[in-house]
Write a protein that binds this DNA or RNA. Structure first.
Lengths: 207, 207
DNA sequence: CGGCTCGCTAAGCGCTCGCTCAGCATCGGC
DNA sequence: GCCGATGCTGAGCGAGCGCTTAGCGAGCCG
């Protein structure tokens, strides 16, 4: 748990579904290592060492190093999709729902930067089958955001030239937070979330 | 040259400063390989093979594999800085200069996606000294964009809540193009450049 | 034409990688 | 109190890594 604090920010519970305990410790260690050095630069000895185990212990819970990345990526994308879906389907005007989606999505990328980095930037390290599965989740994320923007356009609340392109730009803006956000920097995740919600409302021409 | 077309898009000449010819071929091969598989997943045998040489030939022109990445990163960042500086210092209103900066910066990231990917996403694979040198170039890129936005605010043309944060978001939006842009996708680099210039003018509340 | 330089190759060194396997400690069921 | 299942370790395998070195052939200079 103590090693998980840095990693998961306020979202340690996100890994609660991973059992048994040793498998969860290995997974959290892998998230930290992948985020710090990248998937290919991380060794199985490093992961096992961070989890306080011998290198061989990893292979009791996971078939390969890639399976670890796959599990991390799927759980992370499901969490991201859940965040967007919750915001998209709540009550409120399209502008309120879009602002909610962006600010909570950004808070997740900033606060859980370690996890988000792995989830968003190590996709190409997966094999073809696993990558295809994850890409399907990404398309669902895209669909949720696009639905809000389309609602806003249909209601006359938004003024958008290219719905598809704008949707992509909004998601792109949020995702890139995981690349540059620094815990020791001048902003809290909440502040970045609020700033970005304002910027996105401007991008869609919210009235 | 034929191998360079895919890589550099319309910017093959960007590597013209690298001599002799064998060193340039190795560097272009490295850009392609790093962009496809990432720095750590690329082997020196792969780079040499793409350049039509034996693995040992690499070490006649470069001391280490990391020196290749360092050279690629420095040349790429200098080119990116040049693009932003040219747009920032031309004649015109702040809105015109910002639109020019964003559209040309985005065109570079989309058209030269292979190069841009390496330049923007493999920074952490450099050692501390090389990374520090590159980060200095990045801060200069940031300063150029911020100067345009500050000009617009001072002139009363822009309406911005947080200049520093908005500058970061604008650059972040442009840089992330290198991650998602697909040459076979629905947009040309010019189209993305135009769309993004419009979105950024909305973000700064251009009148 | 002989000899030197320069760009390159074939071979391989030392190392670390992902992963395996035989064996040991622990513990619940009977 | 014994027994098999479970979770883990220590040792190490084969492969592939970054990089080195000895030597070879082409080209220029005298």
């Amino acid at each position: 748990m103590s090693t998980a604090e840095e990693t998961a920010g306020g979202e340690t519970s996100a890994w609660g579904e991973v059992t048994p305990d040793a498998a969860r410790r290995l997974l959290i260690a892998a998230v930290e290592a992948f985020a710090e050095r990248g998937y290919h630069a991380t060794t199985t000895r490093d992961i096992a060492g961070r989890a306080g185990m011998s290198p061989a212990a990893l292979y009791i819970h996971y078939k390969t190093k890639e399976e670890l990345l796959h599990r991390i990526s799927r759980i992370g994308h499901e969490k991201a999709l859940d965040i967007l879906r919750t915001a998209a389907r709540r009550e409120g005007t399209p502008a309120e729902r879009l602002a909610d989606a962006v600010s909570s999505f950004v808070r997740w990328h900033a606060g859980g930067r370690t996890t988000a980095r792995v989830v968003q930037y190590e996709l190409d390290s997966l094999g073809p089958d696993a990558r295809a599965e994850i890409l399907a989740l990404r398309r669902q994320c895209d669909a949720e955001v696009r639905a809000i923007i389309e609602d806003g356009v249909a209601a006359g609340d938004f003024d958008v030239l290219d719905v598809k392109g704008t949707t992509l730009a909004v998601l792109s803006l949020c995702i890139d937070v995981a690349r540059w956000f620094n815990v020791d920097g001048p902003w809290t995740p909440d502040e970045v979330g609020a700033l970005y919600a304002d910027l996105v409302l401007r991008m869609v021409g919210a009235k």
